[in-house]
């Protein structure tokens, strides 16, 4: 059979499912590849209706019979396709550095009701991206405050 996402699945979950060729005589369950392209965790409940199958009578060719051995041992585990650790490591380099003068006001406004650790993170973030903000009215920087009327 070929398993494909149902319209209900496409509408309800912000997930992408790959159409997968399965042999239901091999195992009681089949594995289909799902990608979560969004930044939020998605929970799928047991028995959730996620797809439909279609009987394939004749297979012309199969590109790969199964997952590579390494991946096979990690069934059910999730693989990151987006690495964030390098950014986080770099941010640590800016921890406990003095906040640039032109961002002190922004920092004070940003850290209300935040924990000590969060305040340190905000300070490090502002230090890291300090050059992105205008230092004074003559410095356009990478961002600029502009006023315009709304029709």
């Amino acid at each position: 059979y070929i398993v494909q996402p149902s319209n209900y699945f496409k509408d309800k979950y912000k997930l992408v499912m790959a159409s997968t060729l399965v042999d239901i005589n091999k195992l009681s369950t089949c594995k289909v590849r799902v990608l979560n392209p969004m930044d939020v965790e998605v929970t799928l409940r047991q028995k959730a209706d996620v797809g439909r199958e279609e009987l394939i009578k004749r297979i012309v060719s199969v590109i790969a019979e199964e997952e590579p051995e390494k991946v096979k041992q990690k069934h059910g585990q999730l693989r990151n396709v987006f690495e964030v650790s390098s950014t986080q490591t770099k941010l640590h380099q800016f921890m406990d550095q003095p906040i640039p003068d032109h961002l002190k006001d922004l920092y004070e406004k940003s850290v209300d009701d935040k924990s000590q650790e969060q305040q340190r993170s905000v300070a490090a973030l502002l230090c890291k991206f300090g050059e992105a903000f205008s230092k004074n009215e003559w410095d356009v920087g990478l961002t600029n405050v502009a006023e315009h009327s709304i029709d």
Partner: peptide
Amino acid sequence: KRVTVADDVKISGLTEALLDVYIE
């Protein structure tokens, strides 16, 4: 036939997963 999730599963953001499903 319906294709249903075999067990509760959480899929983190920006990841891909192999999902166990039943074909009922």
